[in-house]
Design a binder for these strands. Structure first.
Lengths: 359, 359
DNA sequence: CTGTTAGCGCCTTCAA
DNA sequence: TTGAAGGCGCTAACAG
C-alpha cells in the first residue's frame, strides 16, 4: 500500500520548501513530533534535556502551533462564547474585558457575539459559535428570548444565563440580587425625604428589566410609599430610552421628585433631557441609575447608581463554564450582589427646607 | 500493512454511534462527501437535484460544518484580527461593532485583541492571532509601537495601520486627516473671540496624539494665535488623563479661555474637573473634544467635538484587508476625514461682552 | 520516557 | 459532474 511519496505541494502558498510545522521543529531538535507535541503541551513526563532542545528549536524557528489543527486533533476548541446585547452600551465592554481576562487566565479564548436586540442577528451569532465549536457559552444579554439558544442546549454545550434559564444539567444561572441595591436606593431617597418617586424601566420583555421594576415596587411598598402608575414609564436601555422616558414624565400632571432608572444609560438620558428643559439635578429632581458604568462618576452631577459588579459577573460566568467543561460539580446558581453608590445626583426633594420652591 | 480496523473510539465524547459530520450528511443524501462539501461551498458545478438532497439532509440532521476542520483543509481561517487599545473607551466599541458587521458581510470572523496600552498584553494578543492563523490584521491602536507587529509582518500577513506604518507590500494605512477637523475647531474658537487656547494632548508616544497636537499648533499659527507652552499639557486618552490635565491647567499663572482635547474622554475628564472647582462650561471655559463618541452629545453641556467616523474607519480597514487577501490591488492609503460638530461646550470667551468677569 | 501511527473533519486534486 | 482518497497540522493511543 505504500504509495508514491508525492512531494506535498498543493496550490497552497507554501513559503519555502518545507512548512513551518511541528515536523520542522522535530527535525531541528532531533526528536519525534510526539515529543514536540508533549513539550508544547507541558506534559511533565518529557525529559528536561529534550524539552530544552525543543524549546530552543521553537524559538529559533519562531514556530507557533496552529490552533485549528490542535483543536481538530484534540477535540477541544479552547473557545468560550460570550453573547452580549449591545457592545456600544458601556456596561458591556467593561464586562467583556473582564470576561476575556479571566477566560485567558484559564486557557480559553473568547468569541464575542453582540445581538443588538435583533433575533436574526443573534441566530447568526449562535450559528457562528456552533461552527467554531465553542466549549461553553455565557449568555449575558439580560433576558433575550431563550428559545434561540435551543441549538446550543441541544448540543449539550454548557451554558450560563443571567437570572433565569431552563433547569437542566449543563446550565448555570448568575442570580443577580437586584432587590438589595434597589432597596438601598429607594431607602436612600426616602431618607432624604422623597415620597414622590418614579421609575423608568427597561423593555419589559427583558426579564432583568422586569426584575428591576419589581424590586423597585417592592422597595417602595416596604418604605410605605405610594405607587403612582403614571410615574412608571417604560423605556429601553439606551440613551434614547431615557430621553423618551423623561418626556413621558414631563407630561405627567404632577411630577415626581425622584426617579430611579433601570440602567445608567437611561439615567443619563433622563439627566440630559432634564437639563434641556431647565430641571436641575439634584435640586429639582433626584436621579438614581443602575450598573454604575465608568462614566457615571464623571457626569454632571456624578450619578448615584446601583452598582452591579462586572468583575463578579465575569468571574462567575467563566468559573461556571469551566466547572461544567471540566466536570467539577458546577453550581446551579451563582449569586451576584448589587449595592448603592451614592454620588451627587440625589439630594433632598425641592422645598424640603422652608418651602423654597423654584418658580 | 492492513491493520485491525479499530472501531474509532478514542476517549472523545461521541454522542451516538456516529458523529454528526460530513459523512453522516453524505450517507443521508446518498452522495459522496465531496458532493456535500461542494454543495456547502456553493460550487456551481453541483447538480441541482443532488444539491437539494444535500441541503435537505443538512437541515434534517441539523448539521453544522466544523470551521476548524474547514480551515485546516482549505488553509484559510476566515478570520481577521482587530487590535484596539482599550475596549472600555467608548470610541472602540463603536468601531468594533462596525468592523464586525463589515467583516461578517464579507465572510470573515473577527478576533479582538485589546492591548490596554500594555506591551506585554499586546504581545500575547498577537501570539493568539498568529495561532489562530488570522488572514489579516487591522491595528487600530492609533500608534502603539510597531516593532511588536514584526511577527505578523514577517509572516506576510496583510496589515492595516492608522496614520503610519512601514512602506511594504501587504501593508495599508488609514490616513486620518486630523488637521481638517482640528483646524475647524480652532477657527470656531477664534471666531468666537478666543485668543487663549490650550491643548490637552494624549500620550506623545502615540503617533496619533502627536498628530493631533501638531495639527492644533499649526491651526493656532494659521489663526495668528500665540502658542503658550504652559497650556500644552500632556495627558493620556482616559478620563483620568483629562482630570489630571485640567489640574495642570489650573496651576497655570494665567488660564486659557478654551481647551482643545486630544479625545473625548479627556474632554469629559476636563469638564468634570472644571465643574468640580467651580469653572462653568462654556461660560468660563470652552471645551472641544475629539472622536465624537456617543455620550458626547448627552454630556452637560453637550460636547463640541471633532468627529472621526468609526464607520469610515471600519469600512476602509476591512476593505483594505480584503483587497490584500484576495490580491485585488489594495491601495497603500485610505483617507479618513474629520470634521467639527458644534454643540454647547463652546461659546464666547468670558468677558467678551461688557467685561463681566466672574469673581 | 520516546517514537510510530492512526485519526480529527474537511477540502481538493485526480481519475472516471 | 461525481467519487475516491490523500493531505492540512496536530493529538493521543499504543508499543517499545
Amino acid at each position: 500500500m505504500t504509495r508514491a511519496r508525492t512531494l506535498k505541494s498543493r496550490q497552497k502558498s507554501k513559503q519555502d520548501s518545507s512548512t513551518l510545522d511541528i515536523h520542522a521543529v522535530a527535525r531541528k531538535a532531533n526528536v519525534s513530533i510526539a515529543t514536540v507535541s508533549r513539550t508544547i503541551n507541558r506534559i511533565p513526563t518529557v525529559n528536561a534535556k529534550l524539552a530544552k532542545r525543543v524549546w530552543a528549536a521553537i524559538d529559533e524557528l519562531d514556530y507557533v502551533p496552529d490552533t485549528q489543527a490542535r483543536a481538530l486533533g484534540s477535540g477541544r476548541s479552547g473557545m468560550l462564547g460570550l453573547v452580549v446585547s449591545e457592545i456600544t452600551n458601556p456596561f458591556f465592554p467593561e464586562l467583556i474585558q473582564r470576561f476575556e481576562d479571566v477566560a485567558i487566565e484559564n486557557g480559553y479564548e473568547i468569541l464575542i457575539s453582540s445581538t443588538n436586540y435583533d433575533p436574526k442577528r443573534m441566530e447568526l451569532g449562535i450559528q457562528r459559535l456552533l461552527q467554531r465549536k465553542v466549549e461553553g457559552v455565557a449568555i449575558l444579554t439580560f433576558g433575550l428570548e431563550q428559545p434561540l439558544f435551543q441549538k446550543l442546549a441541544d448540543r449539550k454545550i454548557p451554558l450560563v444565563f443571567v437570572d433565569v434559564g431552563p433547569d437542566r444539567p449543563g446550565i448555570s444561572l448568575l442570580k443577580i440580587d437586584y432587590a438589595h441595591g434597589i432597596r438601598q436606593g429607594v431607602q436612600h431617597l426616602a431618607a432624604l425625604g422623597h415620597r414622590k418617586i418614579g421609575f423608568v424601566s427597561g423593555p419589559m420583555a427583558l426579564h432583568s428589566a422586569q426584575s428591576r421594576s419589581t424590586a423597585f415596587l417592592k422597595a417602595l411598598d416596604e418604605c410605605g410609599i405610594e405607587v403612582r402608575p403614571e410615574w412608571q414609564v417604560e423605556g429601553d436601555h439606551t440613551l434614547g430610552g431615557g430621553i423618551r422616558g423623561m418626556e413621558r414624565i414631563l407630561d405627567c400632571s404632577s411630577r415626581p421628585s425622584a426617579l430611579v432608572c433601570s440602567n445608567d444609560m437611561i439615567a443619563i438620558g433622563v439627566l440630559h433631557k432634564a437639563y434641556h428643559v431647565g430641571i436641575r439635578v439634584p435640586s429639582d429632581l433626584s436621579i438614581i441609575g443602575f450598573d454604575d458604568i465608568q462614566i457615571a462618576k464623571v457626569m454632571f452631577p456624578p450619578l448615584t447608581s446601583v452598582q452591579m459588579s462586572r468583575i463578579d459577573l465575569a468571574n462567575a460566568a467563566v468559573k461556571a463554564l469551566k466547572a461544567h467543561i471540566e466536570g467539577n460539580n458546577p453550581l446551579r446558581e451563582y449569586k451576584i450582589d448589587t449595592h448603592l453608590v451614592v454620588r451627587q445626583s440625589t439630594d433632598y426633594p425641592p422645598g424640603a427646607f422652608g418651602e423654597k420652591k423654584p418658580s
